[in-house]
Design a protein around this nucleic acid. Structure first.
Lengths: 192, 192
DNA sequence: CAAAATGTGTCGTCTATGCAACGTTCCGCT
DNA sequence: AGCGGAACGTTGCATAGACGACACATTTTG
């Protein structure tokens, strides 16, 4: 529809994202209108629709972007799912969820689930990439996918629960719970 | 050529001005290219020429804008050229010149003179407006202009010299010199 | 000195954005 | 129930801006 490399497009999308982020700090998602976004971004309302189907698509994009930006190089380049990598993923996930929920009051369930789904998906993809690059590269595709999905879900679920129960005295305990669980689960299909 | 009220125009000009201000803090005016400005403003080089004839016109505009922004309401609304107003103009002028010369190293003479000329012109206009609104409104137009020009030149010249001799221990002394001089000069044609 | 590189200013073409208008849906109000 | 406003999502048209090319001037390099 629009040329992704046109500098006007890049600038407009940047303006929209930034406007949306600012609005999320003041108003809850549901009460933000397309008009609000367009005004703060100094673009026309119709232009918004040239770039995003609706504000849910926009939320999805900034969620993905923000999470991706937090993935450390260590994880991106990892060729083995080590304890350190595991710890990194757990802490990153927890911190991200915490920040996101704190900054934007996620009042409506459908929104929260959209964000949650996106994070889990990115987490799974990260894990999958590591496994493919690493010593498990000979595994079947479907196995890798399932294992990644399980691991991502476990990490995400734990981090989310940790936030819900309100144990905000650090992530050490959380890591202590999750890492053995995950690493043990991953250890089972390992080729000896 | 371009519609001054189109939001795209406003945004582009804002981007250009901001880019130029940032560049002036790092490089001297002469070594700033149109390309530099366009890149930092994230616009195309040709677009620059749709808004400004060259970088001198741009410098003129931001000079004028920055100076105008500093004129206090007290001066804008004054109906009499009082001591307080006089003091305000002197200090504002001195501070502006000081800031401008400190931030942008004004190495080449033609540039400095361009800026100086602009400031003097704005100063003169401010004074003229006050006199017209005030008790001297019955003066002939040409007289008002000449008196304003003299006063503006005096104030500007003194502020500039004050900066050159390096007396940077405050503006009190400067005001002490200039105000009596100016107010006395203005007093002569006063209708008793 | 010649040649290459960089900057300037302008032009024609194409596209992204602004704008105004439209019908729709939703929601609060009487 | 009916009304009115507000937000939504879409459309056609006008125009600002992106791009590449160009001729020319200036600076840099060898």
């Amino acid at each position: 529809m629009v040329n992704q490399h046109d500098p006007r497009v890049l600038r407009t999308r940047q303006l929209i994202r930034e406007a949306f982020r600012e609005l999320l700090r003041k108003k809850d998602f549901d009460s933000i209108t397309i008009n609000d976004i367009a005004q703060k971004a100094t673009i026309n309302r119709a232009t918004f629709y040239a770039h995003y189907e609706d504000k849910y698509a926009l939320l999805e994009e900034i969620t993905e972007q923000a999470f991706s930006d937090r993935i450390p190089d260590q994880v991106l380049n990892a060729r083995d799912f080590t304890d350190e990598i595991c710890d990194g993923l757990i802490m990153m996930t927890y911190n991200y969820i915490m920040d996101f929920y704190r900054i934007c009051r996620m009042d409506s369930k459908p929104i929260a689930s959209l964000v949650d789904e996106k994070i889990k998906q990115l987490l799974q993809q990260s894990i999958e990439n590591i496994l493919r690059r690493g010593n498990l590269h000979l595994m079947e595709d479907s196995h890798t996918k399932i294992i990644s999905a399980m691991t991502a879900s476990a990490i995400y679920g734990a981090a989310h629960a940790w936030l819900t129960v309100g144990e905000n005295d650090g992530t050490d305990l959380l890591v202590g719970f999750v890492r053995p669980y995950v690493m043990n689960g991953l250890g089972l299909p390992k080729v000896p």
